[in-house]
Design a protein around this nucleic acid. Structure first.
Lengths: 226, 226
DNA sequence: GTCCAAACGGACGGTGCCGTCCGTTTAAGA
DNA sequence: TCTTAAACGGACGGCACCGTCCGTTTGGAC
């Protein structure tokens, strides 16, 4: 059995190293929330009371830092999916999953940015975890549709539509804006079966790979420079 | 009467200067679309076949460049608002405004980024143009509600919710994704009066200032560094 | 053709961030 | 206590971008 604290702070590290690792992650979340996901690495190090070299030794790339910093949120997402499936009411399960994921995005400001950044690409690590998550999502959707609660033309990728558009709002607006909640409410209402009036444009071929619901996902360089 | 071409390319400029100004704007749209709104100024200059100094002389700040580059789209937005008001069918007018604005965001990639960047802040220039746009928006919304087509709890700021969330999708996903269209369809359906089922969370106190529908808006530094 | 103000563009100094290198400190086992 | 590998952190070279300066070119008026 692996020791408890090492699961969180990192295994096989010297006591001081483990302590610093923890400080770095706390600082990273704070700095990312305040200055965005692209804040200078040195700022995180300073905030953590640590030299840059120490930070780089533990997290060789920005990517690794971001992923580690938001690992907890990723796990919460994954847990929410499991709980959603366990809900006896199919619609309520679906609804709660959407709401929980969006709430996480709102709570930890940087998480949203990490979310979009991570979005469509993915590495192969933990492939089986992601596959299971994708299967679970499909099940959740199918089940809610079979119950006549979720509209029949809802496509699993519409979950990504909801989460990414919510992300956009969270990123664009100040922390306490009411707008993101409004968006979620509007979307959930139009996802209901009885809201289906006109036909929808065809869904994206896009898969769900990279959604943090799988408790692991990789980062992506978005708007590339020069 | 002002000469025609000078209205587009800039008045009172020497022939070569006017030509370069046009090239710069074309290049800027291309570069912003390809590399994002934060692409190096020098890249735009190179693409335009022009020295950096020339670019800086015409557009002293990145802001000025972005605004000039997307001025046409801004005007199209403003025109769409006027046309929406002119539509005898209140709902169709409303719907078309949303669709037109979103389509513009999709067409010119960089415009979305400019849109969010510009969002809540605004300078006072052309204050009367913006005020008129805000009044028109209110009228459009009220009229659609009075006709029983738009749900009664729709708040004018929900227009910003729609446009900004759509922006998020356009920015996060590759150009040809179907997701943004799906989002618009879902939102428009839930904006219909008959879609109103549960209560919505309270709307934002946020005004519409800065929406490009006013044909002028200023830029904003988003996630601040350091 | 002449002239000059306007326009041009390459070059350059300044700044901020990256990621590594290396001499110093320290945890922890013998 | 002694030893040593692990961890530390400041400093540094490299790089990309910014925005200006200034010597050169050119449009267009006379």
């Amino acid at each position: 059995m692996v020791e408890e604290s090492s699961r969180i702070a990192g295994p096989g590290l010297r006591a001081d190293a483990r302590r610093n690792r923890g400080r770095i992650l706390v600082a990273a979340r704070a700095v990312f929330a305040e200055h965005g996901i692209d804040a200078p690495i040195a700022t995180v190090a300073r905030r953590a009371g640590v030299g840059v070299a120490t930070l780089y030794r533990r997290f060789p790339t920005r990517d690794a830092l971001v992923r580690a910093a938001f690992a907890q949120q990723m796990e919460t997402c994954a847990r929410a999916l499991t709980e959603a499936l366990a809900d006896p009411d199919p619609w309520r399960g679906f609804q709660r999953l959407v709401e929980t994921a969006c709430e996480l995005q709102r709570e930890e400001q940087g998480f949203s940015a990490a979310f979009v950044a991570a979005f469509p690409d993915s590495t192969v690590e933990h492939a089986q975890a992601r596959e299971r998550a994708e299967r679970d999502l499909m099940t959740l959707v199918r089940r809610a549709q079979a119950a006549g609660a979720l509209r029949a033309d809802f496509h699993p990728s519409d979950l990504a539509v909801a989460l990414l558009s919510h992300c956009g709002l969270v990123t664009a607006l100040p922390r306490d804006s009411a707008a993101p909640r409004r968006l979620v409410a509007y979307l959930l209402q139009s996802f209901r079966a009885e809201a289906a009036h006109g036909a929808l444009p065809p869904p994206s071929a896009l898969s769900l790979r990279g959604l943090p619901l799988a408790a692991d996902s990789s980062q992506r360089q978005r708007p590339s420079r020069a």
